[in-house]
Design a protein around this nucleic acid. Sequence first.
DNA 1: ATTGCCTGCGTGG
DNA 2: CCACGCAGGCAAT
Length: 278
Amino acid sequence: MPNTHYEKIEKAIRYINENSKTQPSLEEIAGAVSLSPFHFQRLFRQWAGISPKRFLQFLTINHAKKLLKDSSVIDVSFEIGLSSQSRLHDHFVTLEAVTPGQFKNEGRDMKIDYGISHSPFGSVFIGATERGICQLSFISKDNRRDSLKSLRDAWPNATISENCSRMDTLRKQIFNTHAESNEKFHLFVQGSNFQVKVWESLVRISAGKAFSYQQVANSIALPSGSRAVANAIAKNPIGYLIPCHRVIRSTGVIGGYRWGSERKQAILAWEAANVQNV
DNA sequence: ATTGCCTGCGTGG
DNA sequence: CCACGCAGGCAAT
């Protein structure tokens, strides 16, 4: 899956958003990403496993509203304490967290590997300690350096070294959708108590579902805190595995995303396509 | 579907 | 403490 595939997808989504009023045809969209309708079809089948037409349906406001309606309530009845488990696609995610204060005492001589690899949603920067994955960010050509910088800023005492092959292996496991993988991932994050609480509730949202910021606020018993929740979500250091892309506006608008709203839409539609294949 | 006004909250100084 | 800004919500159109 070359990176150019995702770039085309993203471009198509942007074009659709910008021309939503005129309801562009498939031919028109294909033209906007400089592909023949035939190649456009093939690209989508390869990338998402579904036709562009189906894919477009997953991008509509109606579909998003339906997701919100079907999702009901996040089950937050996990054990109190800083760990939680969730099924995500065909693998499990556990979350371990420290507050910045705790980290100050424990965080000496920690080792972090990092590397850049290629996902269905563009290049990813992944960082991992012995205790778990501590960063996953999507990168574009103009922010290549930022991910490494934020890793260094977050873990100033750590020994950080490049290990592309480890991250490439990890990347394959993370974005693998085949049922036999059944991988387990351990995440190791640093955040305020509030942030961690919010991130934990995100991990409990399974693929193919979506919640509004309001619903997440309800789930942590802070019904008036939707904006604070949005703030906390925006600080999520581990994209995709902490599925902040599954939180959208209550109106069905996909809303903002740290790594670009189009990418959020792409991931959601891709998940929708994969879930229904199960 | 789009605007504009409103909110309460955590965060950082 | 207090001021700030927010990846939001909601009502009106």
